[in-house]
Each structure stands twice: as C-alpha cells, then as structure tokens.
Write a protein that binds this DNA or RNA. Structure first.
Lengths: 206, 206
DNA sequence: CATATAGGCTAATTCGAATTAGCCAGATTA
DNA sequence: TAATCTGGCTAATTCGAATTAGCCTATATG
C-alpha cells in the first residue's frame, strides 16, 4: 500500500476510535511511519484526509450498489434460490452477514466513525441512514418478500416482517461494537432470534 | 436554575450536538450568558464540567433504579395489572415510552452524548450498555415474562421475545435521533410493530 | 459597620496542535 | 548528464482555545 493510501487507512482507524477532533495529525503520521509535515505532501490538510475517506466510501457504495442491483435482478429472475432456503441456511446466512459486518475491517471502522460523527455532520448521518436503514430494509425486504410469495413465510406486512428480522441483528451489532466481550452471547442470541423468527412467521422447516 | 446548574445544562446540550472535543468553553459560557473565565468560578476546568454531567446522571440512575425496583416488586406482587392489559393499552404504553425517551430533554441529550463518546470513554460505553441494553431487556423481560405466565402471550424463550419487542423500538429511536424528519414514519411503524408482535406471540385481543 | 465571599469581567498567558518554510536525497526524465 | 519531481525531514510559525491573574461590585456575615 502506498503512503497516500496508508494515510487514509490509519486515519480511519484513529477517527473510528476517537473521533475526528480527538485525532492529531501527528498521530496519523506516527502510525504511517512519517513525520506530520510530510503528510502535507499528500493531503492539503487534516480535513482533506477526512474528506478523502468519505469520498472513497462513496465510491465503494457505487460499486456495491451496482453489484447489489445485479444480484437483485438475478434474484428476482430466479427467485427459486431463496425459496429453497432451509432454516439452517438462513441461520448460516444471518450469521455470516453479522460476522462480516462486525469484523470486516473497513466496515467496522467506518461504522464506528459514522456513529461518532453522525450528529456533527449531516453528510455522515445520511450515509449512516442509507447504510444501516434504507439499504438493508429495502434489500432484505425484497428477499423476504420473495420468500413470502413462495409461501415459505406468511405475513400481510412485509415491511414489519423485515423490521422484525433486521432490527435484532442491527441491535446485536451495535452492542458488540461497544463491548466486544459480548460477541459470543450475541452469536447465540442471533441464532435463537432467527429460529424464533422462522417459527413465528411460519416457515415450514425442511 | 442557578448558574452552576445552567452550565451543566448548556454543556450537555452542546456535548450532545458536537461531542466534547468540538465544544469550546467559550461556547458554553456564551449560552449561559457569562464570559468563559467566569466558568472557572464554578468548575475547575472543562473536564470537570463533563464529569459533573456524568456524576449527575449516575445519581439519576440510582434514583430511577430505586423506583424501578419498587415498581418491579409491586408488579411481581400483583401481576394482574399486566395480565389485564389490552392490545390498545400495550400500544399506548409502547408509544408513550418511545416518545418519552425520544423527546425528554435530558434523556435525549444524554443519549446522544453517550452515542458520540462511547468509543472514547469506557465509562460512557458501560452506561450506554446499562441504559439501552441490560436495563430494558431485564425490565421488559420481567413484564413480558409475567404476561406470558398469565397465558396472554406464548413463548418458550422470553429473552428472545423481549428482544423481538424491544429491538425494533430501539432501532426506531436511533433513527429518529439521527433524522427527526422520520418521526412520523417511526410512530406508524412502531404501532404496526406492536400489533404484529401481539399477533405473532398469540395475544388474545380483548 | 467593616469585611469576607461569591461571582462576574477584561486582559494576559500558556500551550498544544496545525500548518508552513526551506532543505535534501533519491528517483525520473528530457 | 543535468534538470526536475517526489516525498521525506527539521525548524519555525501561527493561531485558537484553555486557563490564570487580577480587579470590581454586590451581597452576606462577623
């Protein structure tokens, strides 16, 4: 990784731990292995580093959105994939998704930074809402809707069903962010949540 | 309200909007209507103001815990109160609780401050977890457990049932904190959530 | 009464952290 | 090969924000 990239990386780590205002340019430089003034050969100032992180994230969105749409269309086309999902594979899916978001370095650090800066920065608040509210509710809503159409789950309100599936997962995620020692408990709870969800919404187990 | 108190009040407002590091002593003083140096007649330094806010919050806990315990014991004694709860009154309870936490000045500001500072300050992380994880899950778990014993709701896992009741409420709360424009949607969603919860867990409507 | 004390103010002071100036070595290129 | 560019460094510089000094008035207290 070149220096310019490493600066973003280390800055994100620090911002996610302490918040923008509590990080000194010298801290970032230290972790990169250079002196503070050298940072200015790569970025105009501290704020430009922050902005670059956000811009890069926005690029990531664009890419992700594109691939999601493709998946989405594919999925809509042959929704059979989801219809055949057993309880076990739903469990596995839920757990993998949870662990990915919890531990993936980039997601985890960026989420914490969003959490810390959300009330200070409207743009970040919007990104947060998109990432952790609008996108998952619409994407998972689509999936659950298809599974419902296929008769595996039953509800007259897919939005609320999606909320019931997703909000416990989100809640457990934020708990682990705050206190990693609870991860084991969270994983157990996650399993029980999905099983119970299945039971409540009448999935016939295969 | 005397000056010493007003300082805490205005400081909490600012900390909850911008986070500790982004608030200047002069900002606080301004809002109180005095000059920055005068603050030091009341508090040793900026950090002492922050600490005083937390200390006061801890006192509030103690009081709240005491009254909760009393209610708890009473409730356990004559759990009939909860057994007689209709769907409508559960709805009302849920909505009032939600709106109280969302709008109550002290709760709302303190929650935002906790959110912003949680990764920077272990003590605040612990308070957050207590306030928004351990306490509600145990208290609401107790209530739902009693309602279940009375046969109004059915489950073999009260913990997960409690998670299913509470986590959507928590999620909606954090959404509104971030984007108050979503409050109307959140209230509607909250209603639908509780109705669906009732249906799923088999409350017989009266 | 006279004297503390509380709580406000203005004018320093301090100090830490961002940024700039200016130098230099090694790589790149005309 | 000579000129330029890149990216690093040390040593200023700047500047903003916390804190202190020292004064003043009103109110409470011996």
């Amino acid at each position: 990784m070149d220096t310019k990239q490493k600066i973003l990386d280390e800055a994100l780590t620090l911002f996610s731990e302490k918040g923008y205002a509590n990080v000194f340019v010298a801290d970032i430089a230290d972790r990169v292995g250079i002196k503070a003034p050298s940072l200015y050969k790569h970025y105009k100032n501290k704020r430009a580093i922050f902005d670059a992180i956000i811009e890069k994230m926005n690029e990531n969105f664009a890419m992700q959105a594109k691939s999601l749409n493709i998946n989405g269309s594919d999925a809509a086309a042959d929704s059979g994939i989801y219809e055949k999902m057993s309880e076990d594979s739903l469990l596995k899916l839920g757990r993998e998704m949870f662990l990915y978001f919890l531990h993936d370095d980039y997601n985890s650090r960026f989420r914490k930074m969003l959490t810390i800066e959300q009330f200070n920065n409207k743009e970040l608040a919007d990104i947060y809402t998109k990432l952790y509210v609008d996108d998952p509710l619409s994407y998972q809503g689509m999936l659950l809707g298809m599974i419902t159409s296929s008769g595996m789950l039953h509800t007259d309100n897919v939005e609320i069903m999606t909320l019931h599936f997703y909000s416990p997962i989100y809640y457990l995620l934020t708990i682990c962010d705050r206190d990693p020692a609870r991860e084991k408990w969270a994983l157990k709870t996650l399993d029980e949540h999905i099983r119970q969800f299945n039971k409540l919404y009448g999935r016939s187990n295969k």
